[in-house]
Design a protein around this nucleic acid. Structure first.
Lengths: 218, 218
DNA sequence: TAGATTGTTAATCGATTAACAATC
DNA sequence: TAGATTGTTAATCGATTAACAATC
């Protein structure tokens, strides 16, 4: 029996990008950074950061911290962001446009190779210097260029249909922004992004705060 | 000592919007829905849904399920989405535009009252039928109309500054989409939305799947 | 040395899952 | 009645937090 690979927890994975940003910011002025320092910046407990950095498989210096030059590539490698993966974006509406413009995904290990849209009026135009292709070319381009990631930014009515096409074309992972849960075969990774989740959390925190302040007043 | 209010867990809160959507879809054809049914639709365990619905304080019928007419308002009330709160949007770039267009937040208990932007060229124009105001009017409008929620969709360079203005104007909750962690006094709720998190999760799942399929092949 | 921080083991906490009688 | 599902209590699992010796 071989050593089973211990998978990092999802919360740890989610915290990594924040660490990366903070450290990248510091990298111009500092050589070393401690878990304590990062945690303070984020308003979280130092032990959390220490545990997370442990996952990277690098060593820090007691009393000092971690070498930033070592830390950055370690996190990038952990996230798989060290070699930009090619991706396609389906849907060139305002959401698709916003995603394309979002600080450029370049820093996020992702390179958007092509943009597709159903609307003939949009085809041929450019957004953020990316040319928009007709949907008909989707399957061909994906298989020809061995694209493994697709971003769905189409209206929810055609999201599942789009996903089916992507799966048929051999895509390996789908990042879905349509407000509907997309289903796909188990070997295809689906990450559903849902704005409503964040809003639900916001409202629930607000409610809690209001009941607290009501108690203070009453 | 009074009964301490038991707060629902964050994962439960996050699942509620999905439940709501599914049930709203069913509401045209069905009268009742079971936790099992909802769970199957979402690909999660029925016990999870049952536990979550328990938080709503309504009763189901054993062997049958829940009355949809009761369930919908119960979830909306739980989320605080039964009375749309007024909100302002700061930043009318592609992200702000996308947010405004995102199926309209009307269903999400939020009504965007006004849109603000720094750029004089944008001021006066309309997006999705909302007029864009200059930033100078922000504080006045917030206090005059007792707005409690603000959405930040400005570049990360001015996000903290924008947040400070909002706090000074008396805002109670900030939903931040700039890729930077915003800080505010403890009595102000901040919900930082971070695209990079989702991407990190996607990549980590992809990695896991690839190591699995490599194992299958090898 | 004194102070800070790491790496690591153990304790705690909370969310998920299991089990099952009661009910439609 | 048989089958399904609820409400509820208990068991399990995993993430967070605490504690502390070792090290710079």
């Amino acid at each position: 029996m071989e050593t089973s690979v211990k998978h990092p927890s999802l919360p740890s994975v989610k915290r990594m990008p924040m660490y990366l940003r903070i450290i990248q910011n510091l990298s111009t002025t500092e050589e070393q950074v401690s878990a304590t320092q990062i945690a303070r910046e984020l308003g979280i407990e130092p032990i959390v950061t220490r545990k997370d950095l442990e996952l990277l498989g690098i060593l820090g210096k007691p009393g000092v911290g971690y070498n930033i030059k070592e830390l950055i590539p370690a996190i990038e490698n952990f996230l798989g962001w060290d070699n930009a993966s090619d991706a396609v974006l389906v849907g060139a509406g305002s959401l698709g446009t916003a995603l394309l413009g979002y600080q450029g995904f370049a820093n996020y290990g992702m390179h958007i190779t092509a943009v597709f849209d159903q609307d003939p009026k949009k085809v041929g135009r450019e957004i953020h210097k990316k040319k928009i292709f007709p949907l008909e070319k989707l399957a061909n381009l994906i298989s020809r260029m061995h694209i493994s990631i697709a971003i769905i930014a189409v209206p929810k009515e055609c999201a599942q249909e789009t996903a089916d096409k992507l799966v048929a074309a051999g895509i390996k992972a789908i990042w879905n922004f349509a407000p509907i849960k997309i289903s796909a075969p188990t070997h295809v990774i689906v990450q559903n992004e849902d704005l409503a989740e964040g809003l639900a959390v916001l409202f629930s925190k607000l409610k809690r705060e209001q009941s607290r302040s009501a108690k203070r007043a009453g």
